[in-house]
Nucleic acid binder design. Sequence first.
DNA 1: AAACGGATGGGCT
DNA 2: GCCCATCCGTTTG
Length: 202
Amino acid sequence: MILKKEFYNRDTIQVAKDLLGTFLVHKSKEGICVGKIVETEAYLASDPASHSFGGMTKRNAPMFGPPGRAYIYFIYGMYHCFNVVTREKGSGEAVLIRSLEPVEGIPLMIKRRSNEKITSLCSGPGKLVIAMGIPSSCNGIILTKPPLYILSRDHYHNHHTVHVPFETRQTPRIGITKGSDMHLRFSIRNNEFVSQNKKEEK
DNA sequence: AAACGGATGGGCT
DNA sequence: GCCCATCCGTTTG
């Protein structure tokens, strides 16, 4: 089933954890792509690393919007990153989707990424936006219907994608300077599709 | 295996 | 004018 607005309208850290194991879906003219979410990061109010930290601007406005919407931003002159907005209007919090395990539409992902290695297809926030074909025009749209939505953990029943329990890893966020002491990055332990997954030392 | 630097452009002080 | 929630190819050890 498609995750509803109530799922997103909760504590941001809880949403970031609960998104692990769910399935991001994007439908386009080129075809459908699905990926299991295996890595997320929470961005909070009063969080120096968050785009919302300095208050609302034209760019970060979707972060302050209603929960269950997309916040897509442009970064480093060539990439876009995809976030899910959480909590009630006005809080300015969101969850960055950092890595997916490709599930459906893998040939299309390979074509879009010009890369055949399955483990590096969606192992990073910029990569997964390219592989899934998520356009910047999706910024601010509602995530409870096509073309962009998220399916619950128990959506699939075939042996490849059926939900199996996992351990959640909690580590510092990646690529930020301020707020790096907070451990707000969540990932599925021992999942080979997580970014910067160098053997996960114990 | 890790470190480094270039690509490339919008946002904000 | 500097910063940036990134990625990839190259260099270095």
